[in-house]
Each structure stands twice: as structure tokens, then as C-alpha cells.
Design a protein around this nucleic acid. Structure first.
Lengths: 199, 199
DNA sequence: GCCCATAAATGAACATTGTTCAATAAAAAT
DNA sequence: ATTTTTATTGAACAATGTTCATTTATGGGC
């Protein structure tokens, strides 16, 4: 059959991404297949390839939305705090919370990035950059005497560190009980690092 | 055809793991397929399933060998240093170096772990525990007054942190140039954390 | 109202994948 | 020699991503 329902490309894209998010959230990246997404939105598999270049492209856009959501969440956190040190700690906590609340969606971001050897497109990298700079701002306030280079280095160290804490915390077990100890580890990392940084 | 060559199960297992390691090292986890491994060792696909439960099981054993190799490498590092602080820093550097020298094999360890929802078997977890305790020893020497709980927390924070630094360093780009800045980030993380920890 | 050109959606087809298991061939035992 | 045992096979199955000739509905011109 040919033309049947009248959804624009944007609408189909949106429906597909919503279905994909549900599938990944419930069953992980492994649960995401072209045929399942197509069935969920009431279209044939081939239709997906009109909107997305391929499955990797669909996942990329799904991850982009997750990054946007994460950025919005973390952005809200830094707006509600004064002291830079407290800000950074809250950022770390919020990041851990987000990862534990959306383990599969959060995991899909880096699971997929390393899956294909190539680098992600520019606009995707920028979304990650935007997250990074959320830490740079309070870091700069913390000690105005530091060079941009030093601030970027510190932001990178902190962000990478928290990222790693989440990864190992989540891979350890999927029980909620682990979230608490993971938060404790994250706090240890941030507060000790900052203590050393300011000393 | 039936019985043909006379390799024991152990020999076939060894050949398969060697072939798998080569494939993963050269093309990443995506390059590893049952048929390719079978072809490489001159057996039919079905034979692999006599030795391993399935492909995941084969990858698990491959990762176990990588962990052993990593443990041997890091173990050598801690034997050649006196001051605990220097020890930990060297451990971190050696970890970064290993990750950058064997990006695909190192990546396969956690890429695979999160791929299947379930937890890895006991004997596998123990290999990871063994790596952890490499950091705990010098940490304990650093400040004998700390409780076991505190030491474990610090070891966890440091290890997770370095792990995260490697992940983001490698995902950033596969150029060797990145190894240098990644090492700098790792050093920043460790030295500042330890400074805060001792203060 | 009819017809045609255009665009949209299809779904059968292809190459690969992991995995299984009856069939088979060689070695070991009798 | 003959039988039994066992290791290995490779055809078969279901499911995957992806493509593209075919089909169908729509919108415009008469």
C-alpha cells in the first residue's frame, strides 16, 4: 500500500523516537530493533529509513534528546545554588541521580558512542560540551586566579570522575540500594578533589 | 564429517580465545562473530558451542584474560615503588596507558558487562575485586588511622574516577595525542584527591 | 467527474547474525 | 571385522538491518 495516514516527517520522527525511548527504557539498547519501532508506531520498517539514515542515526537522535533532558535537569540545579562548591557537589549528585533514574537511556549514550568507531557529528559533540561548561562556571567562581586551561582540566577531571562513578555504580548491580553508596563515592570524589584543588 | 583433528577442548578454547582477541583488537567487539572465530581456527561454527555456552560466554572468558593481563601489569607497577602516594599515581598512569594501548580489548570489558542485564559470575567479579585491592594497599599505608570503610570508599572513588577519565579520553578521539591530555587529567584527579584526602 | 503525475509507504527480498541438532565420520572397544 | 562411542559437522531456523521496485493514495488540470 502507499500513502495512507498523514503524518509529516517530523511527526513520524517524533513518534519513532518516543517508541524508541520506551523500548530502550524498558529493555535496554538490545531491545531496540527497527521492526519493533516500526510496529509500535504503526508503520512498515522501510518507513523508518525515510526519516533516519539508519538505526544508528535513530539512536543518535534519541541520545541527543536524553542529553537535552540531562542538561535541563542539571541547569535547574545550578540555578538554585549560590556557593560554587555547593553547586558542584549538587551537580554531581544530580548527575548520579539521573543515571540511576534512567539507567538504560543514560547508558545508551556512551554505549552507542563507542559502538561505532567514528566520532559523533558536530552538533552532538556540542551538546556534550554544553554539559561540561555547567561545571566550568562554578569552578571559575571558586578561584578567579586560575587560567582557562586549569579550569578546563579540573572540569574534565571532575566530570570524567563522576561519570566513571556512575558507570561502575550501575554495573555493580541494578538495585536501588547501590544508589546510596554510589552517591557517597561521588561525594567523596568531589569534596576531596575540591579540597585539594583549593589548598 | 566427524572427528578429524585431535585438539582437546582446552586447545580449541585457547585457539578460539586467541583468534577472538585478534579480531576484537583489530576491529572491536563488532568484528567478533561466531563464524569468523570458527573459520580462523579451522572449525565449524557448531564446534564453538561445545566449548563455550554461547558467544557471550566466549567474550566473558576473553575479558577475563584481559583482566588478568591488566592485573599483572599493574601488579608489576606497585612492586616497583615505595611511597604510597607515588604508587597510586603510577597505578593510575599505568591504567591509562593500558587502556590506550588496548582500546578495544579494554573497552570490551565494560561494553560487554552492561550489554547483558545480568551480573557477571562470581569468579569474574573476583578478578575485578583483585584490581581494586591494588589501590587499597597503598591507600592504607598512606594513613593507617583510617577505617576499612574509609579506605574502601577512597579506593572506589579513585578507581572509578580513573576509569571514567579513560572512557571519556578514549571516546573523545582515537588519536594518540589524546593520551597525553588524558594522562594529565588522570594526574590532576589523583593528586588533588589525595591532597584533599590527607589534609 | 475523470485522469494523470507525484509522492508516500510498503513489504518482499538479501545478506548476516547467533544458535541448535540430526547426521556423519573417525576413533576406540569388542 | 564389527560394534559402540564420541567429536565434529553444516544445513536449518529465526531474527536482524537495510534496500528498492511496486503499489497506492493524494492533489491538480481538464
Amino acid at each position: 500500500m502507499g500513502r495512507r495516514s498523514d503524518h509529516s516527517r517530523e511527526e513520524i520522527s517524533r513518534m519513532a523516537l518516543d517508541a524508541a525511548r520506551r523500548l530502550v527504557a524498558e529493555e535496554g539498547l538490545k531491545g531496540l530493533t527497527a521492526r519493533r519501532v516500526a510496529t509500535e508506531i504503526g508503520y512498515a520498517p522501510g518507513t523508518l529509513y525515510v526519516v533516519f539514515r539508519n538505526l544508528d542515526d535513530l539512536i543518535l537522535h534519541l541520545n541527543a534528546e536524553t542529553l537535552d533532558q540531562l542538561h535541563a535537569t542539571l541547569g535547574e540545579v545550578v540555578r538554585h545554588c549560590r556557593k560554587p562548591q555547593r553547586c558542584i557537589l549538587k551537580l554531581a549528585m544530580a548527575y548520579v541521580e539521573f543515571a540511576f533514574d534512567n539507567p538504560s537511556l543514560w547508558g545508551a549514550i556512551y554505549e552507542h558512542r563507542q559502538a561505532e568507531g567514528q566520532r559523533a557529528p558536530e552538533w552532538f559533540q556540542e551538546k556534550i560540551e554544553a554539559l561540561f561548561s555547567l561545571v566550568e562556571t562554578p569552578l571559575r567562581q571558586l578561584d578567579a586566579g586560575r587560567s582557562d586551561r586549569e579550569v578546563r582540566l579540573a572540569a574534565n577531571a571532575l566530570w570524567s570522575g563522576i561519570h566513571g562513578v556512575c558507570i561502575l555504580g550501575l554495573s555493580g548491580s541494578l538495585e536501588k540500594a547501590n544508589a546510596g553508596s554510589t552517591a557517597a563515592i561521588a561525594e567523596s570524589l568531589v569534596s576531596n578533589y575540591l579540597a585539594g584543588y583549593m589548598q
